[in-house]
Nucleic acid binder design. Structure first.
Lengths: 199, 199, 199, 199
DNA sequence: TATGAATGAGGATTCATTCAT
DNA sequence: AATGAATGAATCCTCATTCAT
């Protein structure tokens, strides 16, 4: 049993922060160890390799995000618009409590090192988002179009926003701007304003 | 006298493609040379270092994009909406003719290697986009909000879209989906229809 | 904790030997590592670069020589001739205990890689020798002439001798030849016997 | 036939100068070409390789020195001392007309690249000097001792002198210092002053 | 169990040499 | 014949990984 209760999580957090800042490839194991405040050798008691650490970090972040989205959308929402706000708060909550984790996830199309499990997890989250879109489309609240493309547009916009304000986090944005951003992304998704009554 | 007409551009294109695919840090010089079809040593007759190549590639891409945006917006547009279509076609034209270049640019917040010139060029393009937003806001056509954040949202959405369809390009998307995407991003930006005066 | 007590010194000695044999430029880092019996990577835990290793080796050798000269000349000598013998034994003692170090030092006019500290140390030793000459000249025991040129002549002669017998060392020369060499170099320096007052 | 009457010699001179300044290993072929004012490719029309150029340069220098020594000692000398002056003027004449060549020769114990011919030529010159010493010893004018060691002492002294004054040449030394140096080196060689009458 | 010194394969860069012009 | 752009083997250096302590 590790001396420190959770060296593993310490390492994942350190890795996430560095990967977000300098890329997976641009991050050295000694740097991860230093940031976590442990010796290099200790990393290898917890992860078999850099690749294993990378995947563990990715999955840790994705699972956390998934948990938040599930929690945020647990309560039944009266409208698609309200449901969107649930998603929005799930995403922004995650992005503000673990900004590096969010930043890291937003960059993983460069996923040379991602393994099967990581990819499966990523697909699962994409599916959750696509489901929301499809549901909204059926309700006439979300504009027509390939759900995955709409998801990509919306998440891309959110990622763009967070990248632009870095190193600040969503919570640092003045509330009025934050609400405007939510509204803007909602407009990106919502069906023509005239039919937006339901939303 | 160079044996090949333009090894420099060949190298920049190879670098752009690989950087977009596997990150600047994750790309090895021999891989760049191989993709360009030249010997490793030849890279160094054209660029002083990997860093120099990275910056040259970044600037080449940014300049190309700038040229396209300038060309696309040259003709006076009757409305902000029409002006948006000009920008949209500038961006999508660039993204479809040089998809790797666009993908690469969309990833440079990890810009550990960017030099002064590269940053200045990036700032110039950001300014062009922000100017468009401000102008549209004064015309009452674009929603309120910090222009740079709106730019980030819109470009982020576009980047998300392109990332999602990769390795296909915008031109590969069925026209109906492409128009929906344009419309969606426009909605992201446009002032609420009720307050819209010219759009 | 270092596994080997003094890798740093091991590396300096290996470097000195190889630099003396094949020039600084002609020596590869893997060769230094091999001769020291360590891995290449280990060099870089002790020295930042080849240049740093070169300077460390140079300074190590110069400091050792300085210490020996100081020790050899510590005891007050009754005559300039006796003082010369002190210097001689300092130089030959150093040359025979660390022949490669001596050989290396004798080659550093090709000092493309020497830094400020190395040059300062070299100047200090030159000054010690020049002081001895001037003192001897004032005593009428050493011939007239620019002290630094006389130093150059005498040290050059010693270097020539050691180079000629390599890879043997001074201690390997039959005592009679060694005494003759000492006498010869003394003659190089001493005032003409007729004008010699104390020698 | 080369366009320029003697590109070969131009290259040898350039090589000699650079080798003396930065070591054989530390000198790049393009640098030699640049200094000679020709293209890199042209070197290879005259010399098969860097090694061939190195040996050609070495031999060119040694042959020149040999010619000067033969010329200088052609006229029969009345005494060993007078003969020494002939040698001295041969050496210093060479050293002042081709300082880089002399400097280069003085460094070739680092002769990793010297071939059979170069070594033979070097041995021949050593022999000439040793012959002079032995002859002088038989005449009672030169001190006892292994001739090769005495040669090494005397040439080493001369080399030390020239190294010390670099980049100036012997001709730049004030005549009085030059005569003192000659006298000093002669003292290094000459038999005990009392018997120096013959010299 | 935790460490960090040691390692060597792998990456960036240089440079002797070739060869199309 | 002369050139210098192109090449890739060889060099310096880095960094993921191991292992003695």
């Amino acid at each position: 049993m590790p001396r420190h209760p959770d060296i593993r999580q310490l390492l994942i957090d350190a890795a996430l922060a560095l990967f977000a800042e300098r890329t997976y490839e641009g991050t050295q194991m000694p740097a991860v160890a230093a940031r976590a405040g442990v010796g290099v050798g200790s990393i290898y008691r917890h992860f078999a390799s850099k690749e294993a650490l990378g995947n563990a970090a990715f999955q840790d972040a994705k699972r956390d995000l998934r948990a938040r989205l599930i929690a945020a959308t647990a309560e039944p929402a009266v409208s698609t618009r309200a449901q969107f706000t649930q998603f929005w708060s799930g995403f922004t909550g995650f992005a503000s409590s673990r900004p590096e984790a969010f930043a890291f996830l937003e960059h993983q199309q460069h996923d040379t090192f991602l393994d099967e499990d990581s990819r499966a997890l990523a697909a699962e989250l994409d599916q959750m988002a696509a489901d929301f879109i499809e549901h909204g489309q059926r309700a006439g609240a979300i504009r027509d179009g390939e759900p995955r493309l709409l998801v990509a547009l919306a998440l891309g916009a959110l990622a763009g926003l967070l990248r632009a304000i870095r190193p600040a986090t969503v919570t640092d944005i003045p509330p009025v701007e934050r609400d405007r951003a939510e509204e803007a992304i909602w407009s990106l998704l919502s069906a023509s304003p005239l039919s937006a009554k339901d939303s």
